[in-house]
Design a protein around this nucleic acid. Structure first.
Length: 932
RNA sequence: GGGCGAAUAGCUCAGCUGGUUAGAGCGCCUGUCUUACACACAGGAUGUCGGGGGUUCGAAUCCCUCUUCGCCCACCA
């Protein structure tokens, strides 16, 4: 198939400049390069109205992907959403900044490098801290940042000149500043307590990093004999019998009748034969298990609290690697045969030992949540240690208020409740990690000074104690990666330098787009830090998008092997196909389902749409040519045909709908009004509206209606060329944020395109404000007539080549204005259409259109009269039934009294229309089929 | 265990504050290579809007309840 079949006179575009088949691979990279050369995505701080410029700023900070990450569909989804928003804002004339960057991803990156070392038979300790950090930095420098390149190939219009990195010198300054300020305000403290410990990563984790997984384990009932009467015993229930060596007490509820006599007595810890006290504490729940809980303060966060309340010792019996071992306060507690044994292995063996000793009462299956390391999935071990914490309650207060007052809008709204719940029950944040890759805790210890002077948090590296001048040592720990991420919107713009141009021009930012999983990891903490250091929220909107899932609803992941590589999609169908499919397929907050085994089907929507768009462009260029086009603005209203008036009307409607779907860009006066909290950011509605306009209105009707006009030289041809080019130009603008490449490629080829201008930086369409006129409605009538004729043809299986005659019975005034236009459109249905005042006699297909217009198609010899009668009969019956129910509604006093006036009005209009139709149908029926 | 959300065409979902003959994409059926497009065009079929109650003149839409799925949180060992 080539365009050689096209009439020579209109074939003005050489095939090599406008291939018949859209080729994204050949188009996209070149276009992206030109955008970058032209600086289309580089934001100019001096234009921000906040520092005296002429434009409102619009800023999105990109959730920084891990520096080692490779693009997956989740990133594709996230990036596409942000890119749609920033491209939209840019076209709306705002000074738009999409600030990209990467996260050094402490534990994750360290794990990658440690794995490499392991392959060489080395551990990080073999290298030592300094060498290890050097090696990791080199690895990151060498291989990191792949994902940023990949984001470019999906069209991300980020300002790469501002790309940031959480571990850069600049951002490290911000991290230190934040730490020291919080420390000085008493919001960071060092605590000795039970935290989540990953025995594989050998570091502590925050509550959020230790993810619970429902697991079927066992609940073991163990009997601990009484010290003063070994014939009696008390039964405790536990899921972790191996921790018994760390038991220092058993607790019962003070109100529990059953155990009143035991409180204060001692029981004997089996195997070890150690006496431990029975204590009373509210923590013991009489309703759970036996009502008795063993207390292991060093290996359970709750037991730790109990231990503190009762001033109990806290022996550690499991070491950092998760093996049974005697550590602090545990001398003689771990039996020699278990020393060095893995905790799970030990569990089995302890159970056997207890069983032999007769202390195992029973074992029952038990469902409970076991926490795993979010980076390596190892079962987390609660461990007693010294860690740094952030006091969260004071920080959470303004952040919570922000969501309540409308300063920050969270979409979809269902997350607001989750956010509130978390914020009101917030717990302190463990920010220290026992790894090497990350921001080292900026705290130095002096051995000579007395507390509190011996602990110094400092913005500068210290070599000597500022108080006594002697040597100091820096804390060994590094900070949680998320501590630096929490500062992201500020630190990337220049904070802590409050005078920084970018910070003044672009902070606070506008929308944060991310996945709901990291609402607490990241989003909530950014809001808190924003208030803590800048006194304001870092953005006014949080958009939480869905997850990419496979056809079985499973989350796409590397480990499951059910992922889709976005680069495959880009290579096969182009970035636009990927973007359109993702954006159109994702309702607010709902997940996107894709079939990894059938990319062709999964991305058909986007691919087909890009192709369609390309073909409209081809038609336009082949038929409009490259000769000068009359400027649209110079056209007089009366020069426009009905089709022109109609498509312009549809365009205005589409523009309005798209604007409404994406929603208000910013809150007025920095506060969302209640009714705005749930509105906007419906990107799928925007995509659907734009698609419908371009495909179903522009291509299916306007282009078809214009074919004849464009071939007939004259004034009207010039009008048609002008309107077509204008409407397509506007349509490309409307679509550009979703499908930037193909729209740009086409826009650059439009007649009259000025070299060096880009669709990416052109203006967003504005709906006209014009007086209503009757022509769009008249075109709708033509459309209906054509559709009716097609239906009749299909129904009676009239051969495609065979022309038929039809008559439309319309009001004389309308008829006069319709005739010429319908003549042009007649070919659409291969029908000769005439207009008459009354229907002709004889057999005919009869269609009643909206508004009471009757279409009569005399089909002598073509139709089966009996079939037609049956059809008329059922149509008539249905209509009468519907009409009856409508009439009864309109006669219902309750309805008339309570329904809104406009509803009543429209119901009445509908009744009148249906009545007319019913009468026409009845006449037709009686004429054709007789009274029978 | 607490909280939140969802259930609409074979599949993925729209249907906003109650009033439409309940929609879209993909899939399916029937025609068509009509000079931009077969990744297309034209036409078509398919839904007791999860079950049951209720409020109302009127419910896919509001309330209650049940069922089934998701998600978030949680110290019941």
């Amino acid at each position: 198939m080539s365009i050689s079949g096209a009439p020579e006179s209109t074939s003005v575009i050489p095939p090599d400049d406008f291939p018949a088949q859209y080729d994204p691979a050949a188009t996209e990279a070149a276009i992206y390069a030109r955008w970058q050369e032209a600086g289309c995505f580089t934001a100019d701080a001096s234009r921000s109205a906040r520092i005296g410029g002429d434009r409102q700023p619009y800023v999105i900070v990109m959730p920084p992907p891990n520096v080692t990450a490779i693009l997956h569909v989740g990133h594709g989804l996230n990036g596409s959403v942000q890119d749609v928003l920033v491209r939209w804002a840019r076209m709306k004339g705002l000074e738009t900044l999409w600030l990209p960057g990467m996260d050094h991803a402490g534990i994750a990156t360290q794990n990658v490098v440690e794995k490499q070392l392991a392959a060489e038979g080395l551990s990080r300790n073999d290298l030592g801290r300094e060498k290890f950090v050097e090696r990791t930095a080199a690895f990151v420098k060498e291989t990191g940042g792949v994902i940023l390149q990949q984001l470019k190939s999906i069209g991300a219009s980020a300002d790469w000149s501002r790309a940031a990195y959480t571990f850069s010198p600049e951002l490290s300054v911000a991290v230190r500043e934040a730490f020291v300020r919080l420390y000085e305000r008493g919001l960071i403290y060092r605590g000795h307590r039970v935290i989540h410990w990953c025995p594989r990563c050998l570091t502590s984790l925050s509550d959020e990093e230790a993810e619970g997984q429902e697991t079927t384990g066992a609940l073991y009932h163990l009997s601990y004999p009484l010290a003063d009467d070994p014939t009696k015993s008390i039964t405790v229930a536990t899921t972790r019998p191996e921790t018994m060596f760390g038991d220092v007490a058993v607790a019962v509820n003070p109100a529990d009748e059953r155990y009143q006599a035991m409180i204060g007595k001692n029981v004997i810890l089996p195997i070890l034969n150690l006496p431990i006290p029975v204590i009373a504490d509210d923590y013991a729940d009489p309703a759970f298990g036996t009502g008795v809980v063993k207390i292991t303060p060093a290996h359970d966060a709750n037991d730790f609290e109990v231990g503190r309340r009762h001033e109990l010792p806290m022996p550690i019996v499991i070491d950092a690697n998760g093996n049974m071992n005697e550590e602090a306060d545990a001398a003689g507690r771990v039996p020699p045969e278990l020393r060095g044994v893995d905790r799970f292995e030990a569990r089995e063996r302890v159970v056997v030992m207890l069983e032999r000793a007769g202390n195992l009462v029973k074992k029952e299956p038990h469902q409970h949540s076991v926490r795993h390391c979010y980076r390596c999935d190892t079962v987390v071990e609660p461990r007693l240690s010294d860690q740094w914490f952030v006091r969260m309650a004071p920080l959470a207060e303004p952040a919570l208020e922000a969501a309540r007052t409308g300063r920050v809008r969270i979409l979809p709204e269902k997350w607001v409740g989750v956010y509130e719940h978390w914020m009101t029950n917030i717990r302190d944040w463990n920010i220290s990690r026992q790894i090497w890759w990350g921001h080292r805790v900026p705290v130095w210890y002096c051995k000579e000074c007395d507390p509190p002077q011996n602990v110094i948090a400092s913005r500068e590296d210290l070599t000597a104690c500022p108080f006594c001048g002697c040597d100091v040592v820096q804390d060994e720990d590094v900070l949680d990666t998320w501590f630096s991420s929490a500062l992201w919107p500020m630190s990337t713009l220049g904070w802590p330098n409050d005078e920084s141009t970018d910070l003044r021009a672009f902070y606070p930012t506008d929308v944060l787009v991310t996945a709901p999983e990291i609402l607490f990891f990241w989003v909530a903490r950014m809001i808190m830090m924003g208030y803590a250091f800048k006194g304001d929220a870092p953005f006014h909107s949080v958009y939480l998008h869905g997850t990419a899932r496979d056809t079985q609803g499973r989350k796409m992941s590397k480990s499951l092997g059910n992922g889709i590589d976005p680069m495959d999609v880009v290579n096969l169908y182009g970035a636009d196909a990927l973007r359109y499919t993702l954006i159109a397929g994702m309702g607010l907050g709902s997940d996107v389902f894709l079939d990894p085994s059938d990319l062709d089907k999964s991305f058909a929507t986007g691919r087909n749409f890009a192709t369609k768009l390309w073909n409209i462009g081809r038609f336009l260029l082949m038929n409009v040519g490259s000769d000068d086009v009359r400027p649209f603005a110079g056209l007089k209203t009366e020069e426009l045909g009905r089709a022109d008036a109609w498509i312009l009307d549809r365009l205005d409607a589409a523009i309005r709908e798209c604007d409404r779907a994406i929603g208000p860009m910013k809150p007025a006066d920095d506060m969302w009004r209640p009714e705005e909290l749930a509105s906007g950011l419906r990107l799928n509605e925007y995509a659907e509206t734009a698609r419908r306009f371009v495909w179903n209105e522009l291509a299916d009707w306007y282009v078809e209606a214009n074919k004849a006009r464009l071939l007939t030289a004259g004034d009207d041809q010039q009008v048609a060329r002008s309107v077509l080019v204008h409407v397509f130009d506007q349509a490309l603008r409307l679509l550009h944020p979703i499908v930037p490449f193909v729209s740009e490629a086409l826009w650059q080829r439009l007649p009259g395109h000025v070299d060096g201008t880009f669709l990416a930086t052109s203006s967003w369409p504005i709906a006209r404000d014009v007086a209503a006129d009757e022509r769009p409605a008249q075109f709708e009538l033509i459309k209906e007539i054509v559709e009716a004729m097609r239906r009749v043809r299909a129904e009676y299986a009239i051969a495609p080549g065979k022309s038929i005659d039809a008559f439309a019975v319309v009001a004389p005034a309308t008829r006069r204005t319709l005739e010429e236009e319908v003549a042009l459109l007649g070919r659409l249905a291969r029908t000769t259409l005439g207009f008459v005042d009354t229907a002709p006699e004889g057999a005919a297909a009869n269609v009643i259109l909206a508004g009471g217009t009757e279409l009569v198609i005399p089909l002598a010899g073509l139709i089966d009269v009996k079939k037609e009668c049956e059809k008329l009969s059922t149509e008539l019956t249905n209509l009468e039934k519907q009409l009856a129910s409508l009439v009864s509604r309109l006669e219902n006093p309750g309805f008339l009294a309570r329904a809104r006036a406009d509803v009543v009005e429209s119901e009445r209009a509908k009744r009148d229309e249906w009545t007319t139709r019913r009468d026409l149908l009845r006449t037709r029926f009686e004429g054709l089929c007789g009274k029978a």
